[in-house]
Design a protein around this nucleic acid. Structure first.
Lengths: 220, 220
DNA sequence: TGTACATCAGTGAACGCGCGTTCACTGATGTAC
DNA sequence: TGTACATCAGTGAACGCGCGTTCACTGATGTAC
């Protein structure tokens, strides 16, 4: 029900598989190629996507019922792809400090890359249909859950405290995505500086969470 | 050059001032009334705004050259209004704990209110023309600067440390706006819960910044 | 005070455009016999 | 292997719509004499 996406037809238009046809994947890729600092999913028209894919506007309907359906497929794809990339990196890092730095590095690297996957999640969360936002929220929550279990693991391993792990993970995720979104409009030579700053910010949250768990006084 | 906005004509359409005309302010207000969880500035058409204001589409051009100009005027107005409201509240609070709680409370209250001012800043930062985003960034920076000086003031007064005040203020501002943006789509009965969580998140950053200033070891 | 005139915020009608969507079609593919 | 047929991803043409923008206009206001 969520994302059938892969595993359909061979991609090449001249393949004998069934016929010289366009695949769902090709539309997704063409759509990604249209995105950029000034173009969000919600600003794309069906005809633009069709043009970029090289098909007639009405052919679009053979694959998706409407643009929202395409957008949600793309959000799912982006979330899945990115969680895999960042999760891999986090499991390779072991110290709490390097896990912060490594994750932030990889995040910024993805931003700079041409995959455009991150753009989808950064841009569409605040605009577009309710379904869009729900899809992005879902992906962010996945990130939070995974980060949370990583934080718990590291805290136990290093024997440091962790105040409200869920909230800590949520704060970090939201902050990183917010700063990342504003970074999309910056020239890439500002990225190293921003990566440093973002690492410090994340560490503030971690250190704060740690401190608050120690002086467990429940002063709200 | 920035915002001439106020101080032009009397507002009433029947005023003898000059004539039964529409004012710039009326267009801004009508535009605000169109915004909501599912409508952002960038999704409004000139004709929609004209309809909401009760004028002919072309009359719009007597006041703004285009929609972008309107949007930027609105972003400036929203920023100015909100900084006044939140700044006032922060100066009334004195303890570091209550200043966090009070500011977050007021922020969430504004979100719930019908002014829609906050919506403008929360939504338009990630979408729309470069000029839009620049305008929103400018307002966020104002918030950061003011928060930074408040943090310094409180840190000195309470004699607590503060690691990289600018970064601390930036982290708090970005986090609050990011969480606020996602709150716009929630039913208002979730707000109290979210306000609590947001307060804790902000305190994590503050406590972390404090801790990091104490163990001043420059391990990046 | 009265008259003639300049100003300018408003208007209705019209333009050309890109949009989403529909229709009836075509022609290659895979299948049944 | 050949033939007839069903399927279905593709297509070109057309639709009605809301859009931004332009034009020539109108009529109330404020000003000059």
């Amino acid at each position: 029900m969520t994302t059938p996406q892969a595993g359909q037809e061979p991609l090449s238009p001249t393949t004998p598989g069934r016929r010289a046809s366009i695949s769902r994947e090709e539309i997704l890729q063409a759509t990604l190629s249209l995105l950029g600092p000034h173009r969000s999913l919600s600003s794309l028209s069906l005809r633009e996507v069709a043009r970029a894919t090289g098909i007639a506007p009405n052919s679009f309907y053979r694959h998706f019922n409407n643009m929202d359906e395409l957008a949600i497929a793309l959000i799912d794809l982006a979330g899945t792809t990115l969680r895999r990339i960042i999760g891999d990196a986090r499991h390779r890092a072991t110290s709490k400090d390097s896990v912060v730095r490594t994750s932030v590095d990889i995040f910024m690297e993805q931003l700079r890359s041409s995959h455009k996957m991150l753009h989808v999640l950064l841009r569409e969360g605040s605009v577009g249909s309710a379904a869009f936002k729900k899809a992005v929220e879902r992906e962010l929550t996945f990130f939070e859950v995974e980060l949370c279990s990583d934080l718990k693991r590291l805290a136990e391993q290093k024997n440091t405290g962790l105040y409200q792990p869920e909230l800590t993970a949520r704060a970090i995720t939201r902050l990183v995505f917010a700063v990342g979104a504003s970074a999309m409009d910056l020239p890439t030579d500002r990225y190293p500086e921003l990566t440093d700053q973002l690492s410090i910010m994340v560490r503030m949250i971690l250190v704060g969470s740690q401190s608050m768990s120690e002086q467990q006084s429940p002063r709200l």
